[in-house]
Design a protein around this nucleic acid. Sequence first.
DNA 1: TGTACATCAGTGAACGCGCGTTCACTGATGTAC
DNA 2: TGTACATCAGTGAACGCGCGTTCACTGATGTAC
Lengths: 203, 203
Amino acid sequence: VPYHHGELRAALLDAGIALARTGGPNAVVLRAATRTAGVSHNAAYRHFEDRSALLRAVCERCMSELALLIERRCDDVPVTDSQVADAWLRLEATGRAYIEFALTETGWFRTAFAVPTGLEYFASDEGVGRSGLGPYGLLSTRLDELVTLGALPSEQRPGAEYAAWSAVHGLSSLLIDGPLRDLSDAERAVAIDRVVTGVVDGL
Amino acid sequence: VPYHHGELRAALLDAGIALARTGGPNAVVLRAATRTAGVSHNAAYRHFEDRSALLRAVCERCMSELALLIERRCDDVPVTDSQVADAWLRLEATGRAYIEFALTETGWFRTAFAVPTGLEYFASDEGVGRSGLGPYGLLSTRLDELVTLGALPSEQRPGAEYAAWSAVHGLSSLLIDGPLRDLSDAERAVAIDRVVTGVVDGL
DNA sequence: TGTACATCAGTGAACGCGCGTTCACTGATGTAC
DNA sequence: TGTACATCAGTGAACGCGCGTTCACTGATGTAC
């Protein structure tokens, strides 16, 4: 065991991400991260100013994971000869991926939204996926695409992100933390379908 | 100062509600509640089994406050000779009241959703307003109304609560805790309009 | 090639926080006879 | 009308928790000469 760890910052970050995955933002505990890194607890202060600095870094990675899943699910949408239909399907896939992430990576989802940050942060974070876009940027891309194809009237475009984002984010919250947490699988599927189609019909 | 307080349970509840109003669920601290009630800290255990029991009671009241605001805003919608138009306006008022509550009574809003409870709880809680319905019950009432009037096709009815509720809940979350917290007043108004009209168009 | 020294990255002990909760207790109240 | 006693509602001291953070420190590394 060498005295100098060498990759301690990365190790602490990974530990923090693992903690967040299981227990959400509150589980990102400085001392726990140093424990799993096999290092004394205040060695962390060489690499992060604060516990909150560690949490912020973890939060960024959680947001990146969300963006990655969205990208992957959009890529899975098969390309047909109808560009318009494809664009709608990609929008739908974006929303479904968002909800899927909340349901399957609940800890990460909660952590991603635990840190006070403005909108610019969600629009893009460098190095995420191929596009370098965050979840918000990916959604905007989908909507722009629809406008470009003439599928979405441009007077409908302003604020369209708000409507789409609110719907999937709200459903996610209600399903994981809120009053809808006890829904059966079937009921949950109905709810998801209803919300996603509601978004599309609302545009 | 009498030895027996007499109304201690009510006093602790009121104190808890005041704490929640300012600081959300985490601010509902047993010792703080007893302090403002002017009583030793463990006197609370005569009236609540736990801190969580107190929090649960506070949560119920927060939910009632939300229901009350919704009812009030619906009552404010003027009655015209078009029953259908009125019903749509009441639905819209319901959604706007929900968001208004989140923005103006943020602490209460957060507290209302802080305690794990199932759906049945939101549907009705006895003694709230005239109708005795919770927020979810009020929303259902509005949607049933539209179906009865023939304004909403009954095949659209199942799961319609999910779509409407998710949208306003999601926007509320994003505005108070999330990435939309820094929106200007004008942008916020646009977002609210867009979400509310999106819900209506989606039905 | 050596040596002196600044610098960086880790260690270990300690503090304070504020709370929730428990224990053994005392003061007030109501009721049976 | 008094008295004995159960019961209820409060008190006060104490514990443990686990953490974030700070302090003074030591071991390793790199660089100037």
